[in-house]
Design a protein around this nucleic acid. Structure first.
Lengths: 146, 146
DNA sequence: TGCTTGTAGTTTCATATGAAACTAATCTTA
DNA sequence: TAAGATTAGTTTCATATGAAACTACAAGCA
């Protein structure tokens, strides 16, 4: 008789991680989308621009910081600029580079979304014990260091 | 002075989980793709068909077991059937339902891919300590119960 | 029976995504 | 300093995805 040793998908780590991550991301994305007409990628761009505001980031700085590819960043920025949430200027002395800042409107959105994001995270972490939370953070540090 | 409290994306749990999951899935997907012309969704369908082989699953059984939506399953099956990796018959007594089985070819692919999948998982887990591994599994059980 | 409602699966359509080609500007070096 | 190589960013093209419409069949019920 032949032995096929099928995989138990529901215990397979990569599968479970992808289920978990998709559930969380989609729940959050739906929320941002419906409340602010803001996609996950747009929010990530805004979060980075907010955090490094003083530095006048370029699109490729944003791509590096968000781990998104430059096409995704370019498209997110196109929408954010059209919505006047981000101002795009040209770099002094390097006309290829853009210099990106949140506008006042952009900051308003940011200041509404950021607490919402924190709440989502808190709700997740509340389901875990302290020890599990710590272990999870260590796991993330080891498997996907920043 | 205004306080904007920007989010530190690189410490934000949903973001980190999505980075980790995408990295792992993409690495594995690239591997299956290049070696077997098999997408991640196709592999998941095959894994479920292998596991519940005796039960003559239908497409919606597969959708339920894989947590994929029925459109994705339908398309994966179309490709798998075209490649003669899966045989599709019609259910006796309910002509809407399909009855799906791996073909001999399908089993060959399965038997090559399954150990590969296990290896990927082992390599991941090898980066963690026993305690971290246990905690990770508990976290997954709590946050994304099967 | 025949009508309504429900279910399995596929197709359509609109959007998302990424690789590669492209444009424009800058840098390198002979 | 002019040609070739690099870099920033956009566009194109091919594929992936999901919601909703659609087709075919089945079940419930008058």
């Amino acid at each position: 008789m032949t032995e096929h040793a099928p995989l138990e998908l529901e215990r397979f780590l990569p599968y479970r991680l992808s289920i978990l991550s998709n559930r969380i991301s989609q729940a959050i994305a739906r929320d941002y989308q419906s409340r602010f007409d803001l996609s996950m990628t747009e929010w990530r761009v805004m979060a980075v621009l907010a955090r490094f505001d003083s530095q006048g980031l370029s699109a490729s700085d944003v791509a590096a910081r968000t781990e998104m590819d430059k096409v995704a960043v370019s498209r997110a920025l196109a929408r954010l600029v059209a919505a006047r949430r981000v101002a795009r200027r040209t770099h002094n002395g390097d006309k290829r580079r853009s210099v990106l800042r949140l506008t006042a409107t952009g900051w308003k959105v940011h200041d509404a979304v950021a607490p919402l994001a924190r709440t989502h995270e808190r709700e997740l972490l509340a389901m875990l014990g302290d020890d599990e939370r710590d272990a999870l953070m260590r796991v993330l540090d080891k498997l996907a260091p920043v």
